[in-house]
Design a protein around this nucleic acid. Structure first.
Lengths: 257, 257
DNA sequence: GAGGGCTGTTCTACGGTGTACAGCATGACC
DNA sequence: GGTCATGCTGTACACCGTAGAACAGCCCTC
C-alpha cells in the first residue's frame, strides 16, 4: 500500500479509492492487532451510528479497536478519507433492483427512493458527508448506475435524464436529511416525536412574525385530522414521490406531443 | 439580556431566538469594543464566506473583531448559537415576492427556487447548517411563509401543500448543496469548472465497476453537444423545476378529475 | 462626591482535537 | 544471520470550545 509519506512532494492527494488495495500478505509488524481497512470502516460506521458525527474522533475510534490513535493512520491517510470510506460503506447497504428485471420504472423508482430515504434516516450522519464529499466510491457508483438505468426507462430523452435524477434524488436527500435530523433531536430529548413537534411549534409561536406561518401549519395539521408526525412525514414523502412521477410522465408526454 | 450563567440550573437551554433582545443601553464595560450581536453575526457570515465552515473558529472570529475570544461569549452562549444566527442572517438575503402581487404561482415559485439555490451556492457553508439546526429564525420563517403562500395558490388541497413544498425545496436544497460543494472544490484547485469535471471523470474511470455509469454519463454529455458544466447545471436545474411544476399541475388535475 | 453594583472585557486554564514524527518490535527474505 | 519493510506505539504540537475568575469602567443611589 502506498503511504502518504512515501508519495512525491505536494502533488494533489489522490482519492482514497485510487490507492493500491492489494495487501500482499503480512510481512512483518510489531504487536499484531488484526486491523485492516474493513474492520476500521466497520467500526467507524458503528460509532457514527451510536454517537453521531460530532462525537466521533480518531482517538475514540482507536479505543474501540483497542489500538493507539495513530495506528489507524497506517490504513487511512486522514480522518476525511476514513469518513469517505464510511460513507461509501453505508451506500453498500442499499438494495438495488435487478438490472434485468424489466419491472415498471415507477415501482423501481419508488423502491430506490424509499431505500435511499431509509438509509439517510438510519445513518443520520450520512447527509452531512454526502454534502461534504464527492461520493464516488464503488457502492455509490453502483447506486448511481441503478438510478440511471431505472430513469433511462421512463421514455425521457437521454439529455433530460440527469435533470430528472436530480429532481427525484435531491428531493429524497433533502427529505432524508431533515427527517433524520428531526429523529435525532427527538431521540436526544427522550420525548415522543409528537411531543417534540408540539414543543417546537409552541416555541416558534412566541415569535410574532411567525404567527402566519404557524397559523397556516396549524390549519394544515388540523385538516389532516390528527395525524401523528410519523404519518405526516410518510404521507408527505409518498405524495411528493407521486408528484415527481407525475412530473416525469408529463415531461415525457410533452416531449412526444 | 439574560445570560446563560444567570439561568436556573440545567433547564433545557432555550433557543437563541427566545432570548431577551433588549439591550437597555450601555451601562458599563471595560475597554469598550463596539460589539453587538449584529456586528458579530455579520463578521461570522463574512468569515464563513471567505474561509468556510471548517476553518471558522471563535478565536479566528475574535481576531477579526479585534477582541479576545471570550468577549464574543457575552453576546452568544455557544458557537452553535452563533452559527444559528449566521444561518438566519443568510436567509435574510432572500428576496421574497410581494404577498399581494397575485402573479402566476409558477413564476413566483421559479423565482423563489432560484433565489434559494443562489443563496445556497453563494454561501456554501449554508447547507451544512440547514441540515444541522432547526432553522426557525425570523428570516427563515418569513421564507417559509412566502413559500406556503405561493404553493397555496396552486389549487392543491391544503393537506397536500406541504408535500409539494417538500418536493420542490428539498430538491433545491439538494441541488444547491452539491452545486455549492462542487464550486468550492473547483475554486480550491484553481482549475476551471470544466477542467475539474474532466479530471474527476477520468479519475473515476479508473474504477472498473464504474465504467457503465461513466459510459452512460459520457454518452449523455455528448448528446448535449459540448455544454460546459455551468450550462449543464443550469439546464438540469431548469428542467427539474419544470418537471416539478408539471408534477404539481398533474396532481391538481388528478384531484379535480 | 463616595460607594456599590452591574456590564463588558481580558487572562488563564482544562480537556479535547487531528496528525507529524521518531522509534521499535516483528517476521519474511537473501 | 543480517537486512529491511511493516505495523504499531509514544510523544508532541498547534489548535479548538469554553468555564471561571479577575478587573475596569460606567450608572445609580445616597
Amino acid at each position: 500500500m502506498v503511504r502518504a509519506d512515501q508519495r512525491s512532494g505536494k502533488a494533489p492527494r489522490p482519492s482514497v479509492w485510487l490507492e493500491d488495495r492489494e495487501r500482499g500478505g503480512r510481512r512483518g509488524g510489531g504487536q499484531p492487532s488484526g486491523l485492516d481497512r474493513d474492520r476500521i470502516t466497520e467500526a467507524t460506521v458503528r460509532l457514527l451510528d451510536a454517537e453521531g458525527l460530532g462525537k466521533f474522533s480518531m482517538r475514540r475510534l482507536a479505543a474501540e479497536l483497542d489500538v493507539t490513535a495513530m495506528s489507524v493512520y497506517w490504513y487511512v491517510d486522514t480522518k476525511d478519507d476514513l469518513l469517505e470510506l464510511a460513507l461509501d460503506r453505508a451506500f453498500g447497504e442499499l438494495a438495488l433492483p435487478d438490472p434485468e428485471s424489466g419491472a415498471d420504472w415507477r415501482d423501481e423508482l419508488r423502491a430506490l427512493a424509499r431505500e435511499y430515504r431509509a438509509l439517510l434516516v438510519r445513518h443520520s450522519w450520512l447527509p452531512a458527508l454526502v454534502g461534504r464529499f464527492l461520493n464516488i466510491g464503488p457502492h455509490a457508483l453502483r447506486f448511481s448506475g441503478a438510478v440511471q438505468r431505472v430513469l433511462g426507462r421512463t421514455g425521457l430523452p437521454e439529455h433530460e435524464v440527469t435533470g430528472a435524477i436530480a429532481a427525484v434524488f435531491q428531493f429524497v436527500y433533502g427529505h432524508g436529511t431533515v427527517e433524520g435530523h428531526f429523529r435525532d433531536r427527538v431521540a436526544s430529548t427522550g420525548l415522543t416525536a409528537d411531543e417534540y413537534h408540539h414543543r417546537a411549534m409552541t416555541e416558534v409561536l412566541r415569535d410574532p412574525d411567525a404567527s402566519d406561518v404557524i397559523g397556516r401549519s396549524a390549519r394544515i395539521m388540523e385538516a389532516r385530522g390528527g395525524d401523528t408526525v410519523e404519518e405526516m412525514l410518510e404521507r408527505d414523502f409518498t405524495f411528493a414521490l407521486d408528484l415527481l412521477i407525475a412530473g416525469i410522465e408529463a415531461m415525457v408526454a410533452r416531449g412526444r406531443g
